[in-house]
Simulated assay, not measured.
Amino acid sequence: MTAPAAGAGGEIRVVVVTNDFPPRPGGIQSFVHGLALRTPGVAVYAPAWTGCAAFDRRQPYPVVRHPTSLMLPTRAVARTAARLVAGHGARTVVFGAAAPLGLLAPAVRAAGARRVVMLTHGHEAAWAGTPGFREVLRRIGGHADVVTYLGEYTRSRLAAVIDPGKLVRLAPGVDTDTFRPATDPEAAKARLGLAGRPVVVCVSRLVPRKGQDQLIRAWPEVLRAVPDAVLLLVGGGPYRRTLERLARGLRSVRFTGTVPADGLPGYYAAGDVFAMPCRTRLRGIDVEGLGIVFLEASATGLPVVAGASGGAPDAVRPGETGLVVDGTDPAQVAAALVELLANPDRARKLGAGGRDWITGEWTWDQVAARFHTLLE
């Protein structure tokens, strides 16, 4: 591989090596992309994904694509990462997720990297508690100068495996211009054929951990209290057929399918309540690291209902920006939704509190400033 020219951004000082990158959808992908956009002198090495060529042309920095949709810490991936570092004389390498690509750290150091920063998410927290994976994560952490964590839950799990002196908090930012309170919520509802109806919206991939199934199980109880309510499930994923079977006969449950990132604000705008009652599965292996969607929903002024999985409660101030529930209990989920739908004033107060919290502590300017200090 020939290292690409630095382009308009000048010399490349930072190389990001990541499995998680757009146009593949997802919270980690958005997080890593947001950091790259706000970092001068960056290049990215990521897997191929449908539509990546057009996406890459729009970026203000070079992107090198691995030929398949998954990168593992193989010799071939190590060689490409090392050539990027050596070809540009980059001094810092950021791994978009510590596990498993952090195992490439010795190769990029040999190529000239002097500083290695590793981001962690929910799956590293799960690895920290799983025999076999725990030992691999300990080895990965030993190669890093800095390992980031999302919140207190992930920090506590990682600190049992990785030197606590290396751990620094770095959570995602929110674009508060893109995600902002709707100027005309009724117009947003009307565009979706939901005019005049209370709407609970969930924006997420359709996978078991996220809790869309519990929303559907809770929905008949919600309808008994709020008969005209609509449950809007935004996103695609492998669990869709199961969810559609579960929702059979419930006409007020709507599926949108996959929605492009730039279309998401319109769906938040149609909501009165945001809910994702995530739950931990597989004895802690499948766990929520934080939940960027909770932050986006708060930025739009919606009260949130979050499941008590992993670090999800770190994205909510209970009683101030939303409610935290047991995502394994449909009755508790239903009670939270009814409480907010039946009390619009309380819902609006929580939503306003969420907007204030996000603009005060979670903007991308604040996150980028923290990130840049870690690179130095």
Results as ranks from 00 to 15, higher is better:
L103Y: 09
M71D: 09
G263H: 07
V42K: 00
K349R: 12
A144Y: 04
H121C: 14
A48P: 00
R240Y: 00
V136G: 08
T373N: 06
P67N: 00
A269L: 02
V305K: 10
A347R: 01
P260H: 05
D20G: 08
Q59L: 09
P344E: 05
V305D: 10
P22V: 06
L150T: 07
G9R: 14
A334Q: 14
R109D: 01
G7H: 06
Q29I: 00
A261D: 15
A36P: 05
A159C: 08
M71Y: 06
P265V: 12
A299Q: 08
G257K: 07
A99M: 11
R138E: 14
T92W: 01
T92Y: 03
L119F: 14
E11T: 04
V94S: 04
V146P: 00
G132L: 04
T92S: 03
L233R: 02
G360W: 05
G112W: 01
I12Q: 03
R245V: 11
T154P: 15
L37N: 08
A171E: 15
V117W: 09
V273R: 05
A126T: 10
H88D: 03
V293T: 15
A99K: 00
G284F: 10
A369C: 00
D184L: 02
A182Q: 07
L72S: 14
G34V: 05
I28F: 00
A82Q: 05
N343F: 07
T242A: 15
V94F: 05
K210I: 03
G87A: 10
I358M: 05
G10K: 01
A159H: 08
L223C: 10
I162Y: 13
G34F: 11
D177G: 14
Y61R: 02
A306G: 03
A275F: 13
F371C: 04
